[in-house]
Design a protein around this nucleic acid. Structure first.
Lengths: 236, 236
DNA sequence: CTCACCCTTCCTGTATACGGGTTGCCGTTA
DNA sequence: TAACGGCAACCCGTATACAGGAAGGGTGAG
């Protein structure tokens, strides 16, 4: 086997391009075109597209694949889901958090406060929260939460490095850290919920601003555009 | 295009066989074998396997595909998730439920109470709850909820038609129906949560009984077996 | 000038073919 | 007899090939 499968390479690369916004909502993703672009056959591309569809980054209609829309309504849904699930997971996890995790979390908070580059900041942020979650013996819930986070990441990337309200988030991280250190599961759960609400608000502010500025912007829809494939096969 | 794509046919058939337990946990699913069995090439089978993996029915390790384990721990997780999400969705949906939905729900409740066949009973049950959910303008949340339900269905099928505690469920359906009719979103949400807890309990009772009877049973694991592919690519 | 129809082109789904890797069995040998 | 090495079968990822359907543009007719 090569160092990594072609499908894996294409998947990762496409995912990055989708998250970064290089591939804009509504843009069609033809198997042949992508295959040619990466110098591979259509087979690994098919695999990649199906994975990305299961991650909610693209829509796989029976006839073609298109980059999924971004919408304020969808963002709302994603955060409603995160606010429902992550506090539960947090409450379960906190009693199992050990000193090793707390130490690492402290270091991550310090790194973030020290003014990391956006990409690294995001990475630290993910690591910070994941450290708590992985202490819960809940692989499926973690899988779900990461699934959701990956989708909201798409919106985050839209304005990463722009929004300057990091102080707020840093303060909340400190609060969460203290609650975890004290072993207060309920408090940590509630703080997590608030933290998510703050992030949502922060993204919304930026989105609404930028959208007002550049009108319809790069593919942001206002309508709650029902995702068409409400029920039925993912593919056919 | 034929009436339906081969991939779709294989997906649906395999899904049914997985849900019904004909394909047992741990059993390997070789692309070639499945392809031969259905008289198609390996390509549609690959698609089907990826879809089923994204539905959580099989595990797609980089080397082979195997039927995913069933475990009491995983069932717990699935119900924890459902209890976190479905009440939220319910609360959002109830204000939008109209008389048409209430009427249909009433008919479904009556049909279930009249003693439908197991398969039809399950179908009515799904329809009953879906009628509420579809009134919320939340396509993504609905997608998630259905995703979760499909996975718990796998456990339900293990003992469908056996457990006789339907009266309890029927009573809860009546309660939910009344709350919906009265437009009480909070009450409906709480009843939904309780309803899920009851179902979980009911399945657990049956599982634990049967497992004690036939020892390790058909592939039921006690351990919380971490799902191996915690992080990283779904495929490679 | 507009509308309709046909043809070209692209794209997808599926089948088949090829190369590499892994597993497990069997024969051989110490 | 037991252990080791090699061979064969299986299986997967990927490439290429083929057929059918959808879309768009251009042309001809009204």
């Amino acid at each position: 086997m090569p160092d990594e499968s072609a499908a894996g390479r294409v998947t990762r690369s496409l995912r990055q391009r989708l998250l970064s916004g290089e591939l804009k909502p509504g843009e069609p993703l033809s198997q042949s075109r992508v295959a040619a672009e990466y110098g591979v056959s259509r087979m690994p591309v098919r695999d990649a597209l199906q994975v990305l569809a299961s991650e909610g980054l693209i829509d796989l209609s029976p006839t073609k694949a298109v980059v999924r829309d971004l919408s304020i309504a969808e963002l709302q849904e994603l955060y409603e889901l995160r606010e429902a699930v992550e506090p539960v997971l947090t409450r379960i996890a906190v009693p199992n958090v050990g000193r090793a995790q707390v130490t690492r979390m402290t270091m991550l908070v310090e790194a973030m406060e020290a003014g990391q580059e956006p990409a690294q900041w995001l990475e630290s942020n993910v690591a910070f929260h994941s450290l708590i979650y992985t202490c819960a013996d809940r692989p499926r819930m973690i899988e779900f939460v990461e699934h959701l986070r990956r989708q909201t990441d798409r919106y985050l990337y839209l304005h990463v490095g722009v929004f300057g309200e990091l102080d707020h988030l840093h303060h909340e991280h400190r609060q969460i850290l203290e609650a975890v250190r004290g072993g207060d599961a309920a408090a940590t759960a509630e703080l997590t919920r608030t933290h998510l609400a703050t992030s949502h608000e922060s993204i919304l502010r930026h989105l609404i601003d930028h959208e007002a500025a550049q009108d319809q912007g790069p593919g942001m829809q206002h309508t709650a555009r029902a995702s068409a494939r409400a029920a039925g096969e993912t593919r056919a």
